[in-house]
Design a protein around this nucleic acid. Structure first.
Lengths: 146, 146
DNA sequence: AGTGAAACCTAGAACCG
DNA sequence: CGGTTCTAGGTTTCACT
């Protein structure tokens, strides 16, 4: 993981479909050399994959909610992970400091869909209480600054 | 935005570097037809771009924090947007219901870097108070379910 | 809207400094 | 590590349906 790797990662974070030649020209390497580095970065897990960035609203997913989870007793993080991984509407989940045990980022189509999703989350035995913060507007969303 | 478009978007969310031929074979279209649809989806803003998904920890960004912003008086969301857009460590920002006015997702290298970033955020005149929730572990992180 | 063909460019492997 | 070369395959435009 040297300086060139960082430049490659940075460039590919913003131009995920750029050709190796294009990436290489930005970091001063030939296309094959760039590809070898990208393959290694993928192998090492630095680059986890490639994705199209989709505007959720334009495909009908209009409601974002942050749900704080208050758990019964001491719950191992992996237990929470496996539980929320089964709910596709949970697009991110974290264990956090503070009064709550976990914070879920939930993305749903509408409030009816939110109700169903919250119901499903609350059915997990370890969930004692939930508190929802509805997102009014998404101001910024981007990747790690690198 | 028909059924095939949804399939294309769904496939590209998980295989951002797949060839048009490969995408087309999954949705029953030729490569040129697939490319035209993807170009249109980009034009229409449904697909905002393509990105490499980077594991932040492997490049030294080890600390995630959620920062609640309590604003002085009534602040228009755009004012908050322009303010936080200038801080690269803010990887996401939302206006939310509840007691806080905005919720920021901050990603930094370490706690020292966090201190600097919080200082910078607090310097905005409209920020009356902040409350930080430090992420202990990232359990799940993925895109819109589509 | 769609397909198929042609020109051009890229990917991926082999080989060499 | 890096570059160069080569072949297979992808991208993109065009004519046509």
């Amino acid at each position: 993981m040297d300086d060139i790797d960082e430049q490659i990662v940075s460039y590919l974070s913003n131009h995920g479909r750029a050709s190796f030649r294009e990436v290489g020209s930005h970091v001063g390497l030939s296309a094959p050399a760039t590809k070898r580095r990208v393959d290694r970065l993928l192998d090492d897990g630095v680059i986890e994959g490639f994705a199209a960035l989709v505007d959720p609203a334009s495909i009908g997913w209009n409601t974002d909610v942050f749900v704080s989870i208050f758990a019964r007793g001491n719950i191992p993080p992996d237990r929470i992970r496996t539980a929320v991984a089964k709910v596709p509407e949970v697009i991110a989940a974290y264990t956090v400091t503070g009064d709550a045990d976990a914070l879920l980022h939930v993305r749903v189509r509408d409030t009816r869909h939110l109700e169903q999703t919250l119901e499903r989350i609350r059915q997990e035995e370890f969930v004692a209480q939930t508190r929802s913060l509805v997102v009014l507007s998404r101001l910024v969303e981007r990747g790690t600054p690198v």
